[in-house]
Write a protein that binds this DNA or RNA. Structure first.
Lengths: 220, 220
DNA sequence: CTAAATAAACTGACCGGTCAGTTCAAATAA
DNA sequence: TTATTTGAACTGACCGGTCAGTTTATTTAG
């Protein structure tokens, strides 16, 4: 076997040993990420061959196995890569103590932009996320937790500034909003391209507005 | 070739020529549906072999091709089969003119029950629904439309009885709720089995409550 | 009532082809 | 020099689909 760098599968997503040699690897990895994102998003992880990915990236099959240990490892790193991008966008929303509801809205807007820009990643996510015994179970659990934490803290912000319905659990609401972002974004891409970003955001925000109670807290 | 029945792919879901010969075919098809639902839900359409499906159904590979024209056809009919079940449940909700919001809530509850009972179908749906050039594009478009129509009319019912936010388009809201049902149901199954049915319904219903305006119609 | 005939339902071995993964010597760049 | 990439070959397993033949239930003929 050659001296493949391969990259840590369970690394903290930050590029740990990137600096060893800038070389061409990072550019190659990037190309492989982009190519495989599209292909896998379209036909599913199992429906795409390594040869196809290599060809689409303008690279040889050997290079794939030089940069990644396996097809499975490539996909795991691809998931981290996508989540890193999404996380960066979500965290770019200033958590100013102004209106937490507005912050939430901006976050959802960022998510919608991400879905529009990386629809293939969104497809990959929803395609593989809920598979029961999956090779990426642990990867998904970790990444999902990281994303939900961000949404959760945004919800907390709202709950701290407004009276909210105690009958709605934070966890379920996180899930509903998180999932709605993916689904609404994908649906727009696939079936309703005429729908605007604002319409989509408004539809998802409806659940937040329903979360804050109409009348001042009944009594609870 | 033998005289395969194969079943109409675009039939209106009602069993048309069931009586010609009771035979074993219907029972066999049912077994194949159940087996493939589970397997495909777990590992994806491309990740399951016809041999596996046949074995799981306690039937030979040839029987699969006797009852269905191809693996693809099996899956298309499987999708219709699942949607028929879900539709029946959604339509079982009495559309009494009482409280449309309560009707909506019951419908979401029915959807949650369905997701709990057929999680594999839900996984199959979200896995394949948004694939761009897919063999089942048309099938999905049709079935999606049928389901959305039911949800849409429930939303209409609410909009007719309450003052609603005109800034939220009906279509986007349909999508958000529809998608949330799948995602919340799957997430409960996969990551949060401790969550109750009521919590999940409440989280999804939040978007309906946010859809009806708090104060009597502002002015629009 | 029984045996032959018929057709639906089913079987499983088989085929052409594909795929993930491995290896490696040679080429190419930093 | 050394890290990186190439491209091609090879393997061993697997896969979708086919097909000639077998079982099973029902019908028909004697």
């Amino acid at each position: 076997m050659t001296t493949s760098p391969s990259g840590g599968s369970t690394a903290g997503s930050a590029d740990a040993e990137k600096k060893l040699r800038p070389g061409r690897t990072n550019a190659t990895k990037q190309k492989l990420f982009e190519a495989s994102m599209d292909l896998i998003g379209e036909r599913g992880a199992a429906g795409v061959t390594v040869d196809e990915i290599a060809t689409a990236a303008g690279v040889s099959k050997g290079t794939v196995y030089y940069n990644f240990g396996s097809k499975s490892d490539l996909i795991a790193q691809l998931l981290r890569h996508g989540v890193d991008i999404l996380m960066a966008r979500l965290l770019s929303v200033r958590d100013d103590s102004a209106d937490p509801l507005a912050a939430m809205e901006e976050m959802i807007g960022q998510a919608m932009d991400f879905m529009a820009e990386y629809p293939s990643f969104a497809r990959l996510w929803v395609s593989e996320n809920w598979r029961t015994p999956s090779e990426w179970q642990d990867t998904f659990a970790e990444l999902r937790g990281r994303l939900l934490a961000v949404i959760g803290s945004a919800i907390d912000g709202v709950a701290a500034a407004y009276p909210v319905d105690p009958g709605v659990s934070r966890g379920s609401l996180e899930t509903a909003i998180f999932g709605a972002c993916f689904v609404v974004g994908l649906d727009r891409q696939t079936y309703n391209p005429e729908r605007t970003r604002e319409q989509s955001v408004a539809a998802i925000m409806a659940s937040m507005r329903g979360y804050v109670v109409k009348q001042p807290p009944a009594q609870a």
